[in-house]
Design a protein around this nucleic acid. Structure first.
Length: 419
RNA sequence: GUGGGUGUAGCUCAGCAGGUUAGAGCGUCAGGUUGUGGCCCUGAAGGCCGAGGGUUCGAGUCCCUUCACUCACCCCA
């Protein structure tokens, strides 16, 4: 009877799966270096207030998904439920506004949300995200989207869809929300229970309801991009122009609003083909021009993106994308008898000192068993040392792909391994 | 939080309407050469049949409870 298992919504990334993670990570690092983004790591937990303030009181994340606890000093702490807030906090704390703007940062980290797990959704999951802070230029929005798109392309994902929208700023959004509420006024009784609540507390979210009764109503609703102020409207037009210049196709979707309150102007999501339910979004982001100020800084514009590792890998698998094989040349050293073992230990070490990988047979098993182990480890070569070899001062070198083998002086073996 | 599905060996699953020592394939280990892997053959190890209770002469199989996993809704990554 096993006493413990991984907590609900968590899981182990086993060696067999690591190649996917390695592939995604190294691709991310390449892309970020290429676009001039620098890595930042922030604490796993922060003051709860940071997230409540940035994500928004009325959001699902804050209302029911945060891992919040009181520490021994009586402070309320929260395991980070997303990445942006911590980055902004760090930006302020370290006076990064004094650096050349925009400051471009990326992170690869675990995210915690208390939810019922399902395919592609976990309580602890990994996100990669990047943020460009300190610039309001729509060309930067385009660059962020392009960068996200490049990552997926580099990974080999096909047939993705880019959804785009603009939800305005604090100047024009209140007017839009008013228009939206007016539109919904005589339709409330036709909405689902969730939407009835949203109508009061989080009007924007009425638009992305998945309920069949609500969709047609949302479809006909006034569109945010028709109600933008001049500044937001120009920004949106410029962004669309830049995306066209970049050759990126996009669907403007007036029902795309995102679930975090800090977004302004641009919001976007990237969806895999046949997107539905939990995996409908593989990554997303947007602009958040008021967040830094909200956290106590001066008004600083910013835009960012985040994507989930699990969903990315899920899609790599569903699209049958092969991961580049990692070359693992290695030499296995087998032996027969204690005297040969002494020699084997010596030779294994020598090979390693030469900067090459080598594995010593384990235990004192039959040669057959040792060869099986060599095969299981996909060793390229096996060195066999027995009484005969000891007597003649040589070792047997076996090529594991073909099976040819010959007796050679160990120095000669080293030469061949080097070549 | 709300629904549906599933819990039998490390993995994927059989186990028919309740009946003696619970099975297969894969994997692991060992043997088939005195010192040689992959293919093949043989064998072994490995299960209180998720847990607790009940019905029964008898429960992996039926009933109840519970836990876990899983898919979906909400929302997100």
């Amino acid at each position: 009877m096993i006493l413990y298992q991984a907590p609900r919504g968590t899981y182990d990334i086993l060696p067999a799966d690591q190649e996917y993670w390695q592939f995604v990570k190294s691709s991310i690092i390449d892309i970020c270096r290429f676009y001039g983004y620098q890595k930042i790591d922030t604490p796993v937990f922060e003051n709860a207030g940071l997230f409540v303030r940035s994500i928004g009181e009325e959001t699902d994340i804050v209302e029911k998904e945060m891992y919040t606890f009181e520490d021994r000093g009586g402070e309320m702490m929260t395991l980070r439920p997303e990445g942006t807030a911590s980055i902004c906090r760090a930006y302020l704390e370290h006076g990064m506004h004094n650096l050349t703007q925009p400051v471009k940062l990326y992170y690869i980290t675990q995210i915690f949300r208390y939810e019922r797990p399902q395919a592609g959704r976990f309580r602890q999951h990994w996100q990669f995200g990047f943020e460009a802070i300190g610039d309001a230029d729509p060309a930067l929005d385009a660059e962020v989207i392009d960068m996200a798109w490049s990552l997926y392309s580099k990974l080999g994902l096909r047939d993705l869809v880019l959804k785009l929208n603009s939800i305005g700023c604090r100047n024009c959004r209140p007017q839009y929300l008013k228009t939206l509420r007016e539109y919904y006024t005589d339709k409330i009784d036709r909405l689902c229970p969730d939407c009835k609540r949203r109508a009061e507390r989080n009007t924007l979210r009425l638009l992305d309801c998945k309920n069949e009764a609500c969709i047609p109503i949302a479809e006909q609703a006034p569109k945010s991009f028709d109600c933008l102020c001049t500044e937001c409207s120009d920004h949106f037009d410029s962004l669309k122009k830049y995306l066209s210049i970049l050759g990126l196709n996009f669907d403007v979707d007036h029902r795309l609003v995102r679930g975090l309150d800090y977004y302004t102007k641009t919001v976007f999501e990237i969806q895999p083909p046949g997107a539905k339910g939990a995996q409908s979004t593989i990554g997303g982001g947007g602009r958040y021009d008021d967040l830094i100020e909200e956290l106590g800084g001066k008004a600083v514009s910013a835009v960012g993106f985040a994507t989930g590792f699990e969903r990315t890998i899920l899609n790599l698998k569903s699209q049958d994308i092969t991961i580049p094989a990692v070359a693992n040349p290695s030499t296995f050293v087998a032996f027969l008898g204690q005297r040969a073992k002494d020699k084997a230990v010596e030779y294994v070490t020598q090979i390693r000192r030469e900067g090459m990988s080598a594995i010593l047979a384990s235990g004192n098993r039959s040669l057959k068993a040792q060869m099986r182990q060599a095969n299981a480890l996909s060793a390229n070569n096996t060195i066999i040392i027995g009484e005969d070899e000891l007597k003649d001062g040589v070792v047997m070198l076996r090529d594991m792909s073909g099976g040819e083998q010959q007796r050679l002086a160990f120095e000669e073996v080293l030469n061949r391994l080097r070549g």
